[in-house]
Design a protein around this nucleic acid. Structure first.
Length: 428
RNA sequence: UCCGGCGUAGCUCAAUAGGUAGAGCGGGUGGCUGUUAACCACUAGGUUGGGGGUUCGAGUCCCUCCGCCGGAGCCA
């Protein structure tokens, strides 16, 4: 019997297999809060009514001991969850002694050091369940919209985007291999077979970033669409985000409540999302008192400032080509720009999607790669795609942890994954 | 890598101006028939992150190393 189903068995004796979440005793009456992953239930023992041996082992039962309890189900408004068990039997499976995480506040350093235990807590469990729902929604959205999932490689021979620092490893006697920072280039190959494709998996950045928005290992979902220009691409993105949000609101109401998330903000997210150009964004920032100059990329503070002008995610389109990746499509009217869009989440959560139309012209792409100083011989296969049936195409990548952090309303991406990998932290 | 902050009991924190290191929680002991991070009483618990220096005297001031936190750059 799982706790979530107890409400259907009022008056009957049930058996719960779980862990001791909390306990209190008041002389001749004792309260055990037991959790089993599906919920929490209070179990009450009364001297004279419950077996005596339970009162003998009560003191031994440390928090988080694994226990199998039996009791009669009662409706009880005073109890957590509204139902309660009158204790008839208790079998300790393994007695936990001195569980490190107490029913009080702890610092993040201590909690991260005990992350393997911390994930048992209510809030952490709620976050990870929302992540589970987000991941399911992602897969469903693409399946329903005829995208084919292509699992792109994690070991790659070269840096895809050139600029960022990558983790490397020895690859037999073939020199170094790198942990993928994106599967995009491989997805571009796959659209010529399937039209619409996506991937979903871990990506790695060896950047020494130390902020609330960065992990060294994070999950990303990337989509790539043949015959879609950047406007078509943005439509997919807003439908995608909206689909995820709706799903979480519908299926994770309890979890959002545990996190004390203000769901009004999430609920008000409707289509279409506002779209501004990079030019507009610079102007907006200058009006806000930033010293941002045209041609510079935006920092975290600037993204936050822009997002505060809107109550929905906002697209910033058409950045200067100099601050964007080599594969982005040159703007047809203004060659100093590229056809791209970043999606900035509301409430200061920063960029959650980076997307663009890709350069589909062989000569322009080659010139761009040379300009970026890329080793062309590593990209022969990628250039081939512009020789054999090249088409207009676009794609985007969404960071899972940032999205989950935003939906949950938590301040740091490290809590949006079970075992975060960060600069200076790889334990546990 | 750079800038800033922090490091005191198992945990969260306090210690006026440089002058005998404390509290709450947790642990232990006892009490309590409806608790909600239960409560009450008693109790144990410390090389103040490491090293060096200034001083009659350093948790407090200085130097250095280590660890952690936040931010920048870069990005999702």
């Amino acid at each position: 019997m799982r706790i979530i189903h107890v409400k259907d068995f009022i008056g009957e004796e049930v058996e719960i297999k779980g862990w001791l979440y909390n306990k209190r005793s008041k002389g001749k009456i004792l309260f055990l809060i037991v959790r089993d992953g599906s919920g929490y239930i209070q179990v009450v023992g009364v001297k004279g009514e419950s077996p005596d041996y339970i009162f003998d082992i009560y003191d031994e039962l440390g928090l988080e001991s694994s226990v199998i309890v039996k009791g009669i189900v009662r409706k009880e408004p005073r109890s957590i969850g509204g139902y309660e068990l009158s204790l008839t039997g208790l079998e300790p499976v393994q007695i936990a002694v001195d569980y490190p995480i107490q029913k009080k506040e702890h610092g993040t350093a201590f909690l991260m050091e005990h992350r393997h235990l911390w994930i048992r807590s209510k809030k952490q469990r709620a976050i990870l369940r929302i992540r589970n729902e987000v991941e399911k929604a992602i897969v469903d959205f693409f399946y329903e919209n005829d995208f084919v999932r292509i699992d792109t490689p994690i070991l790659t021979p070269t840096a895809a985007e050139g600029s960022t620092t990558l983790f490397s490893t020895e690859y037999f006697d073939m020199g170094k291999a790198y942990l993928a920072q994106t599967g995009q280039l491989y997805l571009e190959a796959a659209i010529f077979a399937n039209g619409l494709v996506y991937n979903f998996g871990p990506t790695f950045r060896a950047e020494k970033s130390k902020t609330r928005r960065h992990l060294t290992e994070f999950w990303m979902v990337e989509a790539e669409e043949a015959y879609y220009d950047n406007d078509d691409n943005m439509k997919v993105q807003e439908n995608f985000i909206s689909y995820i949000i709706e799903r979480v609101i519908k299926r994770c109401a309890d979890e959002l409540k545990i996190l004390e998330r203000d769901t009004n903000i999430l609920q008000s997210i409707s289509l279409p999302f506002p779209k501004i150009t990079y030019d507009d964004a610079v102007e907006l920032l200058q009006k806000d008192g930033f010293s941002t100059k045209w041609g510079e990329d935006f920092g975290g503070d600037e993204e936050t400032a822009i997002s505060k002008h809107f109550d929905k995610p906002v697209f910033i389109m058409d950045y200067p080509r100099k601050i964007k990746a080599f594969y982005m499509k040159e703007h047809s009217e203004r060659p100093e720009l590229v056809r791209c869009a970043d999606l900035i989440a509301p409430e200061g959560y920063g960029e959650i999607i980076g997307g663009s139309q890709r350069e589909d012209d062989y000569d322009k792409l080659l010139a761009r790669m040379e300009e970026f100083g890329l080793a062309i011989e590593n990209y022969r296969w990628y250039l081939d795609l512009r020789k054999y049936g090249s088409v207009v195409h676009s794609g985007f990548g969404l960071g899972i942890e940032r999205t989950v952090a935003w939906i949950c309303g938590i301040p740091h991406v490290r809590e949006a994954t079970a075992f975060p990998r960060m600069l200076y932290r790889i334990y546990p």
